[in-house]
Amino acid sequence: MKSNRLNTLTNGIVKSNPTFRLVLGTCPTLAVTTQAINGLAMGAAVTFVLLCSNVMISLLKKVIPNRVRIPAYVVIIATFVTVVQMVMQKFLPSLYDALGVFLPLIVVNCIILARAEAFASCNPVLDSALDGIGMGVGFTLSLTLIGIVREVLGAGSIFGAPIGSLGNVSMTIFILPAGGFLVYGTLMAVVNYLMRLSEERKINALHSMPENDEEEVGA
């Protein structure tokens, strides 16, 4: 049971990473990752909404009538998004300005709706919370990674701090939408390659064990 819960948590971070593996929520991914800090803030906002909405929907799964579940989910998600928006506007105005329209657009973020429909609506509260955190952290890490790569290549800085004189030779394309696609695609290829390597290693390990046994038996 415990390892199951751990799996639920890590599932969203590695195996079913929403950005690189499920390819969900690509619109905000490409739009806000011009700077690492924006990616981090967007990820944090999504994580909060994901956690709260997963818990709430899991709690209310017996109450919400099946026929109107999507409107009910949207109301719940929109509530938490508005909370994030109001709090951010008050306490983090510069990030609020930077994220712009993509903050309210979290309401229709497909990661959140997908987890509500596919996981929270048919799992216990604790598992739903863990799934929300896992998926949120996975999304945050991916966005921050894309943001770091784009900021370093495109602006010669990292989290707003310039790296030496790299700013003089920066390639602006990486901050523009085209560069977003380039970085996203390349990182997705790398992540999937690494995933396949580790999977093959696992399969090999699984296959080699019985073979060894047979050899021993034969010998």
Binding site: T82, V83, M86, K90
Partner: peptide, 11 residues
């Protein structure tokens, strides 16, 4: 809930 948050975070 939104009303409560607004009370604390209104700009």
């Amino acid at each position: 809930l939104l009303g409560l948050v607004h009370h604390f975070a209104a700009v």
